[in-house]
Nucleic acid binder design. Structure first.
Length: 262
DNA sequence: GATGACCTGTGA
DNA sequence: TCACAGGTCATC
């Protein structure tokens, strides 16, 4: 399922292939997919005739700006969404979901006047499309996370460290796999109270988030972490060979090493 | 903040 | 048939 890295690959594909093309129509028959009161009719009249001028991203949310007076189209990939433009897909195949190409899974699409299309394929149907989203509901993007901001959000929270990092309103973009990878690399117990980190540890965590995102981006996605290979029942810590613990933290399945994560 | 719900596909 | 899945939302 897509995390911030897959969203970024999708953004890059949109930037390279969808900007400047005149929008001729929408395929938005799935009303459930349209959020915050948006209807297919309203979306169509708002977008047709405009062109996308910029492809932005905040956390996992894709933001497609249109020209003057036009709205911003926001797309979310949910747990299984992929962007397909003129038949070309962004990024590596996803884990934990189907990578087949069933026509029924196309939940939302923008048709261009030149005959091509930007489409969102999403088997599980947990993605979304909306217009002019409230971007402030999301915290700063994880790639732009500063040490002072990290210090601030950890310092006042008694929640588990992992839950704070995955709270999109505090930092936008960190998902289940990447967060497990970061905490494993930093040697931190995911269930540990967020405010219990001393300042040197916050600095270490900040560096680790940054380096992990950049390295996994180069490697090809959120499934390329070193912990990924051990992410199964009975898996051993790739660092020290200790059997990994599987527990639920912040509502998500969490793999971590009881020896070196403290 | 933890829990369950949302929706659907896959693999055991 | 069941458990599980890289996300988000409403509800207690």
């Amino acid at each position: 399922m897509p995390e911030i890295l897959e969203a970024e690959y999708a953004r890059e594909l949109i930037e390279a292939r969808a900007l400047g093309r005149v929008i001729a129509g929408l395929d938005a028959d799935d009303a459930w997919y349209l959020k915050r009161g948006l209807t297919a009719t309203a979306a169509t009249s708002a977008l047709v005739g405009h062109v996308f001028t910029d492809a932005r991203r905040r956390g996992k949310l894709l933001l497609l700006d249109t020209d003057v007076e036009g709205p911003t189209l926001a797309l979310h990939l949910g747990m299984s969404g992929r962007i397909v433009i003129d038949g070309e897909e962004a990024g590596d195949p996803l884990r934990y979901t189907s990578n087949k190409d069933d026509a029924r899974w196309y939940r939302f699409g923008v048709r261009f006047a030149d005959g091509g299309a930007l489409r969102l394929r999403d088997p599980r149907r947990l993605g979304a499309a909306e217009l002019d989203p409230d971007e402030e509901r999301l915290g700063p993007d994880a790639f732009a996370l500063t040490l002072p901001h990290l210090r601030a959000i950890l310092g006042k929270s008694r929640a588990p460290l992992k839950a704070v990092l995955m709270d999109q309103s505090r930092v936008a973009g960190l998902g289940n796999l990447i967060t497990d990878e970061v905490l494993w690399r930093a040697g931190l117990d995911p269930a540990r109270e967020a405010r219990s980190l001393d300042d040197d540890t916050v600095k270490l965590l900040h560096r680790t988030i940054r380096r992990t995102l950049l390295q996994m981006q180069r490697r090809g996605g959120s499934h390329t972490g070193d912990l990924m290979a051990a992410r199964f029942r009975g898996g051993l810590c790739p660092k020290d060979g200790t059997p990994l613990t599987i527990s639920t933290v912040g509502g998500r399945t969490t793999y971590w090493c009881p020896l070196h994560q403290r």
